[in-house]
Amino acid sequence: MATVNIQNIQKNYGAVKVIHGIDIDIADGEFVALVGPSGCGKSTLLRMIAGLEEVTGGAIRIGPREVSHLPARDRDIAMVFQNYALYPHMTVADNMGFALKLKKADPAEIRTKVQRAAGILGLEKLLDRYPRQLSGGQRQRVAMGRAIVRDPQVFLFDEPLSNLDAKLRVQMRGEIKTMHQRIGTTTIYVTHDQVEAMTMADKIVVLHDGHIEQIGAPLELYDRPSNLFVAGFIGSPAMNFIDGRIEEGAFRTKKGLILPLPQGVAAAGGRDLVYGVRPEHIRAATHGIEGRATLVEGTGSEIYAKLDARGEEIACLFRERLDVRFGDTVSIDIDPARIHLFDKQTGLRL
């Protein structure tokens, strides 16, 4: 186990800048999720930490050691790949024990460690199988087993669950989290699924185009997103953004829709702003802002609706059963304490 310290890391592919100077500090035993849209550089960053990709600039420290230019095999990290990258010609047991075998560990010791990892992951019955004889979820667990057996300083995961179906994904999410709680190894976990990040991580790093948008605990990102990108990325369904200005103590859109504000923000008057409110923070009310339903989707536990309120589209998530149909007029109420205001120009939170 170790801390991981990333300082001003950069990566260029030829003239293309992919990572533009990133700093992350990871405490010993922390579970950090790297999230961001496709192509933002998550895998690249992770592969640089692993040593599979050269760094263009900056420094990576694992524990007290500077490892930026060490080959992967000297970094004492374990990695689970998106496509698992198992050894196709080895059995499950050999796959898991390979790293130890390379270190010339005693065969009996390898067997014990593999058995223990297999026990944690429920793979005992599959030890003699070959990867091609396993299901996706089983392969995924073998890939994890290969990492656990190593007992490394740091675990790196690159979207390990993206190939699994929704149910298995939820189950494996729980298993990874449980495993982390049991073993306590520092973990860096790449995902583009923000639900995974929110549920598993101690700390989330939001990446966008090779920059860090925000680093923080899951609820911190949810409650106080520091800019429009994070606000739109974290939370599902996504936050509503409504353009307008503050006039006479209220938020007013161009088309004249008036939205409630918390106390003490009048100072921000006079410039273009974006009003953000999460769909789940909108409640149905007997009177309030009125909108016509343009989309209604019920899942049983909740109702997702899009309303047209004076030309502004507002998505709402109602937890109670409402009898809403397409074209109905609905009155809603927004909790002013839970809204977010951003500067339209800079995208930053006010």
Partner: peptide, 29 residues
């Protein structure tokens, strides 16, 4: 021969010779 196992092996600590011996040879067998 698939390329991904070589990255796994790199992480698992294999030297160039070990990659040849334990991955390449059996996979092209």
């Amino acid at each position: 021969v698939p390329r991904e196992p070589y990255e796994s092996a790199e992480i698992d600590g294999a030297t160039a010779w070990q990659k040849f011996r334990y991955l390449t040879v059996p996979m092209i067998a």
